[in-house]
Amino acid sequence: MDKPTKLEIRNMTKLYKNGDGVRNINLSVSLGELVTLLGPSGCGKTTILRTVGGFLQCDSGKILIDGQDISQLPPEKRPTAMVFQSYNLWPHMTVYENMAFGLKLRRISKQEISERITRMLDLVKMAGFEKKYPNQMSGGQQQRIAIARSLLLEPQVLLLDEPFSALDAKIRSQMREELRKIQTDLAITVVFVTHDQEEAMALSDRIVVMNKGSVEQIGTPGEIYENPATRYIAGFIGEMNFIEQRDGTTVAVRPENVRLELGDATGGDIGGIVRTIMMLGHFYEIAVGTDKGIVKAFASAEEAAQFKHGDLVNCFFDGTYRYQPNSDQTENV
């Protein structure tokens, strides 16, 4: 990596009293990078973010920003800013007052505060909202202001905890794009939390896939999609067919890598009978019933037109993964 490391989490463990939490987390994020923590609900994403922000003390390990250990500092002393999942804005203050709060504490002149807020509101496309109270705005607008408020603090590292989860799909993808644009324009280092793999794929420079309190794989969206390190990740990211083998291993293949041919259902990698053909936008999903379960294949409209319900087909796999039983090892075939 050529860029300098901004944030480093070194062997960090944080366990709650009941034994839940995160174990042995190692992660380094370079300057201007957007890294996503991805994993199902309860896997410890928020816990990691909160230890970085200073809202939780880690049990062991270090958190470094620019090489300085910050793990003993209270939140107000850390060069981080966090956007929470909800209840971010202070309801008794206007948008302007919300945004000015942190700047006033930094003893910045009134004039400059006002200029910076105007500029920031422009950036997040919320100009003219200064006098509104949080309750007078939609959820998306509130989250935008929350992000703007954090950006105004010019944090070394911006922490975003599922900031878009309360929004509907359309505004969500719009906000994603805007965030990505602002982040690259301002070259801010961001740690983003989501349990939505699509969001993670669309947004991130790198993704940290988590499972039950530990890191399972770190890589670019492409790397993780192309080479899911474990069966768990293979199932979590994108669509995947799993075919159990007689020796206990599992063969995995993505639907786009499954090619179908009309035949007697005994040839190819596996044979079966066409169960359903579904249109999913510009492509079709064909489900083939085999004696190892359903195998899904993606096909273009032309390809799909060759098949109908009940046809016998042979499936050919153009790229598969093999996972050992109960282990993290994988072999690409």
Partner: peptide, 11 residues
Amino acid sequence: QQEEAARDAGA
């Protein structure tokens, strides 16, 4: 979270 956001902002 509202208190935490204030701490975060430097209070």
